[in-house]
Amino acid sequence: MAGHKIYKMSFSSVYPHYIKKAERKGRTKEEVDEIILWLTGYSQKELEEQIDKEVNFEEFFEQAPTLNPARREVKGVICGVRVEEIEEPLMQEIRYMDKMVDELAKGKKMEKILRTV
């Protein structure tokens, strides 16, 4: 199976775009990090190490300590595709993160983004 181009992109090259998107809407880097940590199980230190190592998205998700089971509750459309219908597991993980950052930028409360309510 041929992987998508994004799989080999470094996570650290996309991460600043997540932050910029959130900050343009009055949200913070800390909130973006909270989403990523919730989703992947990384600690803040481990996240920073992954960014410093410039791992690609495939490695980023393969090395994630514990993918949050509640991520399956993330639903909706991102890039014109319903995240819950994406069949390729890695692409679905990437889109979960995209969708959650998008929800943050749209002003949703963290409790709802993290599916704690």
Rank of each mutant, 00 (worst) to 15 (best):
E59D: 04
H4Y: 13
G76F: 15
Y18M: 07
R72Q: 12
E93A: 11
H4M: 09
E84H: 11
V74N: 01
G3A: 11
L39K: 02
I94R: 10
E84G: 06
I113R: 10
E88V: 12
F60R: 08
D102M: 14
Q63I: 01
V83K: 09
P89K: 11
M100C: 01
K5C: 05
S43K: 09
S10N: 14
N56W: 06
Y7V: 08
P65D: 12
K112P: 15
A2L: 03
W38N: 08
T40P: 00
Y96K: 03
M91N: 15
E31L: 05
I36W: 10
M100R: 03
E49I: 05
Y15W: 11
R71E: 02
G80P: 00
S43C: 12
K20P: 10
H17S: 15
N68E: 01
L47C: 12
I36D: 12
R27S: 02
L37M: 06
D98C: 12
K25A: 15
L37R: 05
V55D: 09
Y7R: 06
V101I: 13
Y96L: 00
K25W: 12
T40N: 09
Y18W: 10
K106W: 15
V83F: 08
G3F: 00
A64P: 01
K53N: 11
E49T: 04
P16D: 02
R72G: 03
G76Q: 14
A22W: 06
E85A: 09
Q44R: 05
F11H: 04
A70F: 12
H17V: 15
V74E: 02
V81M: 14
E85V: 10
K25M: 15
S10F: 13
V14G: 03
M1G: 11
K106V: 06
E84D: 06
E84N: 06
E48C: 04
K75F: 01
E34P: 00
Y15E: 01
C79L: 15
K21L: 15
E59N: 00
I35C: 00
N68W: 01
S13T: 11
P65E: 10
G107S: 08
N68S: 07
I51G: 10
K109C: 11
E31D: 03
V101R: 08
G80S: 02
I113C: 03
K25C: 14
L104E: 02
E59L: 02
E73K: 15
Y7L: 00
E84T: 10
F60T: 02
M110T: 13
Y42K: 06
L104M: 07
V77P: 13
